[in-house]
Amino acid sequence: MKSFSLKCLCVSSLLLTNIQFVIMSQSHTEATNNIPHWDGAPASLADYPLRQNHTIIDPWRYLDRLGLYKILLNVTSSDATLGRANNTANILWGLPMQLGWQFSTGRLQDFTNETACGKNQTEVVRDNEWNCISPWSWWGSMNYFLSVVPFLGALEAGLFPHWPHGFTFLASLSQPEDYCTSVLECRQRYPVTMTNWEDFFLNLYDPNITEPQYLIRDCDDKTSNLSPREQIIITKMWVAHTRSVETGLALFDGTRLMFMSKPEQSFDLGWAHLIGYIAAANFVTDLNTTAILQMRYLPKRLLHSGDTPPLIPDLTWDENMVIYILRMAYNIDQKTGDSLIHEWQRLMCSPESRAKGRAMIPNLLNPFTTALNVIDLLWMSFTVC
């Protein structure tokens, strides 16, 4: 029975290989073009202003926050696993890709309508409205714990040992008490979140690591699609990512969501809930994978009152179905005490089943393929786990 399951896994691995071939057809430049103003973001700490021997970073400016991601990508590019393929294999690419999508779809704006922050998507001089992230944006506030806090975790882990200056992160002008702006403050207020990100970065640069393989293996390899080190790094990244989302949900669901339309609120909660599913599968958020899936599945605009998925006329079928599925999965888990996600997490019990889970995600909207994958996963739960 075990060999039958592994044969099925080989078939799915071939399918995933084909998907990856399509994904890898995008160049680095084409993929980063999906991140607005990527070339204009700071590429090093020296690109931020220096005052009184402190590097000044304003995380409420889109370019400043985007620069944190570019610097983290640059500083981890020499890692044996993350830095391969001209750093496009780096799993940190999922973070700036998400921020860029939030920016381009207007999800970083002031939803109280008290200011014009984030409402103008063109580069105008007036108040730098285009370059503004509002603390009254649910997405912008949630992303704070996926940008500033990871950067401070990297700082604490020693990734910038030769930088001679201190750091000052400017506080939000609204609700500053919701955010931490230094290693000390973040460690005091959100100790588990900070520890998780520091732990992720501490696992990089191990001099004993010699494994160059990444993701796809030959079917003769019956153990896993990820090398042992990849599993460690990706698991620790998702632990930190999930904790950041949980931290943000506890702070912002009652104070930020209310300013958006009901369909957008439902989508936002469904998207946050999705993290638990993709984290359990150790999904690989490299540059090209993230770019392709994001362009295909994520809605290109905010959802408005009256939008009813899967029948929103100006969104694609893929976008409609993703919105609908996220809402349905979230509602099921809300009504059943998270029974659906707990079952999924139970099925992600082995390297083989996690590989199957990763293969399922790009094909989720294909009902025939999804049904076969679910059957195979159930078989694995009895034979492999």
Score class of each variant (00 low, 15 high):
4 F>E: 01
102 Q>W: 15
42 P>H: 00
156 E>M: 10
167 F>V: 12
174 S>G: 03
231 Q>W: 07
15 L>H: 04
255 T>Y: 06
90 N>I: 01
275 I>R: 14
247 T>E: 00
294 Q>N: 11
35 I>R: 02
383 T>N: 09
1 M>D: 08
330 Y>C: 07
306 G>Y: 06
355 A>E: 05
298 L>I: 05
131 N>T: 02
27 S>V: 00
11 V>G: 00
278 I>E: 15
256 R>M: 06
282 N>S: 14
114 E>W: 12
223 T>M: 14
376 D>L: 06
353 S>Y: 01
11 V>K: 00
6 L>K: 04
314 D>M: 04
338 D>Y: 10
117 C>A: 15
40 G>I: 02
127 D>V: 02
152 L>W: 07
339 S>F: 06
180 C>W: 09
371 A>Y: 13
66 L>P: 03
85 A>P: 02
319 E>R: 01
364 L>H: 05
285 T>I: 03
274 L>R: 15
172 S>A: 15
329 A>D: 14
101 W>Y: 12
256 R>V: 12
87 N>W: 11
72 L>T: 03
202 L>H: 14
333 D>L: 06
137 S>W: 11
16 L>E: 03
317 W>P: 00
165 H>V: 02
283 F>M: 11
296 R>L: 15
234 I>E: 08
266 S>N: 15
185 E>F: 09
260 M>A: 14
165 H>R: 01
48 Y>N: 05
21 F>G: 15
287 L>V: 14
131 N>F: 03
94 G>I: 02
354 R>L: 08
245 V>D: 10
183 V>M: 11
261 S>W: 10
305 S>F: 10
80 A>H: 07
138 W>A: 13
368 F>D: 09
222 K>L: 13
127 D>P: 02
337 G>R: 01
43 A>Q: 12
282 N>V: 07
126 R>A: 06
268 D>W: 15
374 V>R: 09
293 L>F: 13
69 Y>S: 15
154 A>H: 03
328 M>R: 13
331 N>M: 11
204 L>C: 10
148 V>D: 06
315 L>C: 05
315 L>Y: 04
262 K>N: 12
266 S>G: 14
313 P>I: 10
